[in-house]
Design a protein around this nucleic acid. Sequence first.
DNA 1: CAATGTGAAGACCTTCACAGCC
DNA 2: GGCTGTGAAGGTCTTCACATTG
Lengths: 219, 219
Amino acid sequence: MYVTQRVVPDATVVRLPLYLRALVDIAAAGEVTVSSDDLAEAAGVTSAKVRKDLSYLGSYGTRGVGYDVAYLIHQIRRELGLTQDWPVAIVGLGNLGHALARYRGFGERGFRVAALLDADPAKLGERVEGVEVLHIERLADLVRDEGIAIGVIAAPAVAAQEVADLMVDAGIRSILNFAPVVLTVPDGVTLRKVDLATELQVLAFYEQRNGVRAATSRS
Amino acid sequence: MYVTQRVVPDATVVRLPLYLRALVDIAAAGEVTVSSDDLAEAAGVTSAKVRKDLSYLGSYGTRGVGYDVAYLIHQIRRELGLTQDWPVAIVGLGNLGHALARYRGFGERGFRVAALLDADPAKLGERVEGVEVLHIERLADLVRDEGIAIGVIAAPAVAAQEVADLMVDAGIRSILNFAPVVLTVPDGVTLRKVDLATELQVLAFYEQRNGVRAATSRS
DNA sequence: CAATGTGAAGACCTTCACAGCC
DNA sequence: GGCTGTGAAGGTCTTCACATTG
């Protein structure tokens, strides 16, 4: 058992998907190499940040030339673990769960919606994009049979912690939570959250601050 | 009055909604005062962070006692600009746009969905939660008539920049973008983004880095 | 005595600026 | 000459630790 040593900073990790998307666009435009300046522009960051971030992955650029687009795409995919398919389970098929189940962006990026689960008997049996909605108690089976490693919580806030516990018990170690509630998970489980109302509240703060009097912008 | 220039750090701003939600729960549980320790636990952060964050708003606590829950809720609401209602426009009524339009969490937190817009004639006229879907060209009128200050982009990636431009032209200065693309807006416009596929890619990174333990039977 | 409020220290992240290499 | 890769500097955020206060 070895302790994982951080090589890539967290701040860099969240930008890698951004670079990846920009690079895919650049490749589609027929470019073979790209400079840190151009990639920075496409990703909406500074060129110093691009160079620093990419330097954590290794020395994949060529001085005086730039980065080989196809090679860099490959390296970032490898670093993000996107050379394999990740089966995902979505729990909770209300409005948001349905939208997520139908979202094409997941499949396009290698995340296959392998299971849809709900606790409400009225929702069972329905098919969304060809995947049948099963009862939540089937989760552990599906994790084992489908190799599910990532769970998405789209359940109501009151049920979210219970769903998280079930996911952890079933062996899931990566959870994306959309419920507006603070979840507790054991060490070794990675938890990220997307909080829609919070995003609007943060916008309201800056709107109010800027609205009172013209001020500097944030982005 | 405002002799001191009070600057709330960005990192603190994004936590204020978290504290607010925790405080509302605590108030509902009948608690009158709360310590930084308890609030930290409820919000999933450290108590030092809570005290530091709240100190940017002013000295609202009482040493030896804690914070008055109702008063703190009021102060955070005021700081976030949540003492007023914020009319929101959602542009793009695909899967995600529909889900957002039906999401109750917005209304509960003072964000009223005042307008639904799309460019696709096939979608016009439909009503979601009582709000009619109108053509995107009506945006400027609605911003003026409804006082819309916040725009939500749920349009396809290829249309997102165009939508952002229309929003800016219409006078919107706060934008929440769900399209997986980098947007450019002028100074003075606040832009935040929610990128669903990116969240999963970040999870995949940590899932991979934490080592593929033999917990699942992937072939 | 309990718990806040806050300087100071430390960790982390960003930006600068330029040496090094193609 | 052009552009990467990276130490160093500069900022921002977090954590510590304790003086201060009710």
